[in-house]
Amino acid sequence: MSAVVSDVGTRTAVTARDLVKIYGKGDTAVRALAGVSVNFAAGEFTAIMGPSGSGKSTLMHCLAGLDNVDGGAVHIGQSEITGLADKELTKLRRDRVGFVFQAFNLLPTLTAEQNILLGLELAGRKPDKQWFDTIVDVLGLRDRLRHKPTELSGGQQQRVACARALVARPDVVFADEPTGNLDSRSGAEVLDFLRMSVRKLGQTVIMVTHDPVAASYADRVVLLADGHLAGEILHPTADSVLSALKHLGDV
């Protein structure tokens, strides 16, 4: 564990420089991100936290190229993604980014296996059989591959989503409240897997959550308040996160 942490700074997966995102116009304009600069190291599990309206989801959307920004720059690896056209962004998401959303992660028309391989198929890439098997076995989805999403439990659905996010070996996996819709046991399973994918499989995960327990699985927590960076916690625990959140107002 310490080995991984010491890597921080040696290689950055995602960088944001002075990110500004404004919703609305004129008097009603809201600065959802008011100049956020933050680095996310490769091979690290980072949680973005903050109260509702702090801009944490917006930050993630901008980092992932799902939303355009009003100022600043985002780099994924060496390439700047701000200012890219939709087509290039789409290609970037396809090839270098994985997603796990809070809900509705899977296409109801496809089986679990087809869902896992969908991104690769869109990119026209052949799945790495060994890697696929590793992920499927680690996630315990072997006997669920032929099931449709409606035949899977919520936890299973999220695990399929995790498998899909990882199967293409993306530069970074973005997880938006991945446990928000799960009971605590299923949630723990998913978080365990995300952590393991970082520690054992060398992946990079950036997760947005409002749950201190979920955040405690991460290597580092980045705190956000009112569109500003409000501090970070290394090696968080649920308690340290909770108390940090409590004192956010003082920052």
Binding site: K87, T90, R94
Partner: peptide
């Protein structure tokens, strides 16, 4: 709508 958004997030282009 959400499904389309998901597909777009996963790398389906507008044209596709």
């Amino acid at each position: 709508t959400r499904e389309s958004a998901l597909l777009r997030a996963l790398g389906l282009t507008r044209g596709q």
